[in-house]
Design a protein around this nucleic acid. Sequence first.
DNA 1: CTGCCGATATACT
DNA 2: GTATATCGGCAGC
Length: 210
Amino acid sequence: MSSVDPALLARDARLVAPDLLGLVLRHGSRAGRIVEVEAYCGAEDPAAHTYRGRTARNATMFGPAGLLYVYRSYGLHWCANVVCGEEGEGVAVLIRALEPLAGVEEMCTARAAARRPDAPTVRRRDLCRGPGTLCQALGITGSHDGADLLSGDRDVWLDDDRRPPPDIEQGVRVGLSVAVDRPWRWWVRGAPEVSRGHRSIVPRGGPTVV
DNA sequence: CTGCCGATATACT
DNA sequence: GTATATCGGCAGC
């Protein structure tokens, strides 16, 4: 396990996103392999938080590549993004799903704490399925907004553990009402943690950036 | 498996 | 006031 090359992240989010598949997001002893991501492309992307400029919430997304941008979604859940591109661009990649790799017991405890006391045990493939649930499982909250994933200054890391490169599929992003046709979501073929019901696929060999 | 619903912080009209 | 980069629980198939 080695740290990620900063140059990998200092590029267009649509190029970085598929390259994040297979890397490992880690918080303390909890870790998961990235299997689903979405690119958000700043001033040219009406669905990006940074589309209309800087606010208190999105400030981190304008920072340098390698920062973790954490925001609250629907007032309830935390969602984690890897800031990429050049400082000031406001582009990032949303992490949508992980394959649990380490600290699975901790993940189960963290996820159970957010559910009804009598709810059944969380299945392994549901531990980190979705941007909100993976933050619950890893214990990532708004306190980690602005953390440096390359130095691990807040014990959150992005590790380069990719081998070999995964088989990647591409499609439209999930849960949007604007820019719904831009195919800026990528996932690992066959990964059970990938969002269900949103599998419209760009033909293999087709465009990776539109 | 699928579909519907409510909870609720932040940004915007 | 309305919309949103979501989720868990439940109903029905």
